[in-house]
């Protein structure tokens, strides 16, 4: 990577690795998060996302590799870089017997570089932004999970930040809250803040992010813009026909793989066809089908979805990776 491109990276890691006992949590990770991007950090549970975030923020020392956060080495420059970084790490955590506001005041006071004269104003503003204005005087033990999550996001917004690191920001939020977070992230991004969001919710990432990285078993398996990641996926088509057997023969002749789709009894059978990344022209396929006497009742071409790409990259099934 050349010098100018490097300078435009908000987060860069090279060869980052961390072992917990015998378990390799993260290995040889090369992240490149462009300045101004909304960067989705995807991966199944236990794939090393949170460990990576903890290393980025200087909470956990890497065994190997380098981290550059806003062009400063971490954890060496933590004192000068972290005030410019807002973070939500593995869920919110607050003193239950203090009010939401008192908790934020405490965390802001802990930051030596924050201005105490503007503190109460900034705390109020952050609480308003996440819709906690009315609950700010309530003790946190009376908060719901969603309210705590909002308070966690408010903490990340206490000051003007150049980078936000949000670990599972929509966890525990209701649909309205999820939408608000999405809008908040979008508005922050338009102001030029780089947002690094980790999630296992693909729809979230798909709606929010411009760039994506996918982790699996502590390894980075894909990284790039959302479009790049999608385009490496495969187009699919769904065929609805009462003559599935003939259709399968036709597809086989065209060199296409088919899979019967489960349907209710009495419904017209459906076939799923993988078109491959160099998608054959759909009308050609339909033409072949009709010529062979297949009664085509429906033929839909689907763009590759992030979900399929994700499953292809990280494997299927419920078993935890490690």
């Amino acid at each position: 990577m050349n010098a100018t491109a490097t300078a435009k990276l908000a987060i860069q890691t090279t060869g980052l690795g961390k072992k917990f006992g015998k378990r390799q949590a993260v290995s040889n990770l090369d992240l490149a998060v462009p300045h101004g991007s909304v960067f989705g950090f995807l991966g199944p549970n236990g794939s090393g996302k949170t460990t990576t975030i903890r290393m980025l923020l200087g909470l956990v020392t890497p065994d190997s590799g380098n981290i550059s956060l806003l062009n400063k080495p971490m954890p060496k420059s933590a004192a000068s870089v972290l005030p410019r970084v807002g973070a939500l790490i593995e869920g919110p955590a607050f003193y239950p017997f203090l009010s939401g506001r008192a908790n934020l005041v405490r965390l802001d006071a802990a930051d030596r570089t924050s201005t105490s004269s503007t503190r109460s104003n900034r705390v109020e503003e952050a609480l308003e932004k996440v819709g906690l204005g009315k609950a700010s005087k309530l003790a946190v033990h009376a908060y719901s999970l969603g309210m705590k999550q909002r308070l966690g996001i408010a903490n990340a917004l206490l000051r003007e930040r150049e980078l936000l690191v949000l670990d599972e920001p929509t966890n525990g939020l209701d649909p309205q809250g999820t939408r608000e977070v999405r809008n908040l992230v979008a508005s922050l991004a338009t102001e030029g803040t780089t947002v690094f969001v980790s999630s296992h919710l693909l729809s979230e990432i798909e709606q929010m992010c411009s760039h994506v990285a996918v982790m699996s078993l502590g390894n980075l398996v894909a990284q790039g813009t959302l479009e790049e990641l999608r385009s490496t996926g495969q187009h699919r088509a769904m065929l609805r026909t009462p003559d599935p057997n003939v259709a399968i023969e036709v597809f086989a002749r065209l060199g296409l793989e088919t899979k019967p789709e489960p349907t209710h009894e009495g419904d017209c059978p459906q076939l799923r066809v993988v078109l491959g990344s160099d998608a054959q022209v759909p009308e050609r396929i339909v033409e072949e089908l009709v010529r062979a006497g297949v009664r085509v009742r429906g033929f839909v071409v689907k763009d590759p979805s992030l979900e399929e790409r994700f499953v292809a990259l990280t494997g299927e099934g419920f078993d935890l990776a490690q």
Binding site: L59, P83, I89, E90, A93, Y95, L107, A110, D111
Partner: peptide
Amino acid sequence: GAGTLRYLLTSPVSRAK
């Protein structure tokens, strides 16, 4: 135990302080 340590340290506060 309360999880507040990670937020204090990233606020940031140096560990010595």
